[in-house]
Nucleic acid binder design. Structure first.
Length: 106
DNA sequence: AACCTGACTCGCC
DNA sequence: AGGCGAGCCAGGT
C-alpha cells in the first residue's frame, strides 16, 4: 500500500457535506509533512468522479488555484451543492464543515 | 540511476 | 505580520 493509495482511501472517507484539509489527509496517511504528497496524489487522480477531491481544501479553507477539473469555481459549486457554506467567495467555513476526525489509514 | 518538481504546511526571520 | 525555505513521496526526464 503506497502513500498515494492511502491518500485515495482517506479522501474517499470524507463524508458528503464536509471538507478536509490536505494536512488532515496527510496525518491520516502517516504524517503532516506529507501534505504536499497528498496534493500530488490528487493531481494524478487516477479515478476522477470516484475520488471526491473537491472536498479537499487548503488549511485556511481556501480552494487551490491549480484545480484540475474545471477550476476553483467548479469546486466551490460542488461543495455548495453538498451543503457546504462559504465565509466568502473563496473560503470554506472550516469551523462548521471541516471533518472533526479522519481515521488513520494502514 | 540521479535530480527536479509538484493540488501543502509550518517555522523562522 | 508577511515572505521564504525545509521536509515529505512518486513519477518523469
Amino acid at each position: 500500500m503506497t502513500v498515494f493509495e492511502k491518500v485515495y482511501e482517506a479522501v474517499k472517507l470524507i463524508p458528503e457535506g464536509s471538507v478536509a484539509t490536505y494536512g488532515q489527509i496527510a496525518e491520516a496517511v502517516g504524517g503532516r509533512r506529507l501534505s504536499r504528497v497528498v496534493g500530488y496524489a490528487l493531481h494524478v487522480n487516477p479515478q476522477p468522479g470516484v475520488i471526491p477531491c473537491h472536498r479537499v481544501v487548503m488549511r485556511d479553507g481556501s480552494i487551490s488555484t491549480a484545480f484540475a477539473f474545471g477550476g476553483a469555481n467548479r469546486q466551490k459549486a460542488l461543495l455548495e451543492a453538498e451543503g457546504v457554506l462559504f465565509t466568502d467567495e473563496t473560503h470554506v467555513d472550516m469551523e462548521h464543515f471541516r471533518v472533526p476526525f479522519l481515521p488513520l489509514i494502514g
